[in-house]
Amino acid sequence: MEKVKTKQEYLKELKKNLSSLDKGEIDEIFLDYEGHFSEGLKSGRSEEDLCDSLGDPKTIAKQMKVGVIVKKAEFDRSATNIIRALLAGMGLGFFNLVFIIGPFLGLLGVLVGLLAASLAIFFAGLISFFVSLATLISPDLFTSYVGVASGSWTLMFTSIGLAALGNLMLIGSWYVAKWFYIIIIKYLKLNLKVIIGKK
């Protein structure tokens, strides 16, 4: 990338990279950087020197964006917001790609597995419930297919139990999914702290 040497170029580059944020947010950020330039110039520093000491406008824009977007995801929990926050986090560098995507995919895998298992148990229970119900109503309906027609009361209660278990697991995984969201946000914030060095 060509090095930015003037105030105008610097602010232009910054604006370009911040374009996904709200207008108010951008204006707020600009107040800081415009101020920085005007104060710096007043104290006799050159525009080039100021650009140098500020660092790459792209990096600055990324740091600003991650801060704002993670904050947003924290207040408004929607899939789009969390994905935006993740993407912004990844934008900070390849290093973070590994550290964000890795745990994220791992946790997501666990979550999907849990969901699939609870759905499977729930439906297994439901199906065997109807099968047992059917065998109770007309004992010889399934006997040719299912060899358990005799113990159908046991089967029926077992299947109710299974369906209930599946249901509980579904509710459980819903809570896990909620925690998952909170943990991801916490993790992203921690990541930010490490990168930007908040404290």
């Binding site: 800081d32 500020l54 660092g55 600055i60 740091q63």
Partner: peptide, 22 residues
């Protein structure tokens, strides 16, 4: 701050921005 710490001047503004959001 930059008198006391070796930190890029530009990174202080994102920090301030976040402190403001917090």
């Amino acid at each position: 701050i930059s008198k006391k710490m070796a930190i890029s001047e530009g990174t202080i503004y994102p920090l301030l921005n976040r402190l403001k959001h917090d």
